[in-house]
């Protein structure tokens, strides 16, 4: 008997004597929606608030972002070719649109698209078919996820409904972090130490 057959027959033997089985519970979508969000005038405003609460950074202006990158010493990075039009002609900041693995420690930032964002939790949704290069969204110290206002959904449940058939959907809520050493919070372990959302109007 194969391992598969052994496992299935063991499961069936274990379940056969049960006199009755637990039904699947009904539950409303509202059950899991966080009610501590407060009042916001719009989804982008709520998203910005929650992203900052999760130690992320929110920008709605390319100029302000460029200023921030310069302050952080971010002078060389990768940019999704489809977005490069937005980020050309920056004084003192250079971008490449081909991700070169040999320069993985030289890129100080990576700019890729996000497919959505979640207002209730300040989460960015990264999908494989939208992210131009997985490593560009992961390896540089600063990750800039670019999305439009209309990409922001209200709840985690709505974001899950939008999975489609993408094989890799990532919810990123703030920068990479750990508290493994004596419970002390350190940001930037393997992934980005700075997580930025750049939300553009339509």
């Amino acid at each position: 008997m194969s391992d598969r057959e052994q496992i299935f027959s063991a499961i069936r033997a274990a379940l056969a004597p049960l006199p009755e089985k637990t039904a699947r519970p009904e539950w409303d979508d509202s059950l899991i929606v966080c009610t501590a969000s407060g009042q916001f005038e719009s989804l982008p405003a709520q998203f910005a608030d929650k992203l900052c609460a999760a130690s992320g950074k929110f920008f709605d202006s390319i100029e302000a972002l460029a200023q921030f990158l310069k302050e952080q010493g971010g002078t060389f990075g990768y940019c999704d070719p489809a977005l490069a039009g937005h980020f050309q002609g920056w004084d003192g900041i250079r971008v490449e649109t081909d991700f070169d693995e040999n320069k993985i420690n030289e890129y100080s930032f990576g700019i890729t698209r996000a497919s959505a964002a979640i207002a209730e939790s300040g989460t960015l949704v990264l999908k494989d078919c939208v992210t131009s290069a997985r490593l560009a969204a992961l390896a540089p110290w600063i990750h800039i996820a670019v999305l439009h206002q209309s990409d922001i959904v209200a709840t985690i449940g709505e974001a899950i409904q939008g999975f489609g058939d993408d094989p890799s959907v990532i919810f990123a809520t703030g920068p990479s972090k750990t508290a493994d050493v004596e419970g002390i919070l350190i940001e930037g372990v393997h992934g980005p130490g700075v997580q930025i959302a750049l939300v553009l109007p339509e």
Binding site: C34, F99, D128, R134, P167, S168, I170, A172, T173
Partner: peptide
Amino acid sequence: QLTVYNQFIGGPRVEGQPHG
């Protein structure tokens, strides 16, 4: 509220994705 990364993985990388 949410752990930083929640990854939902259902297969190898998509066509055109250079990594993964």
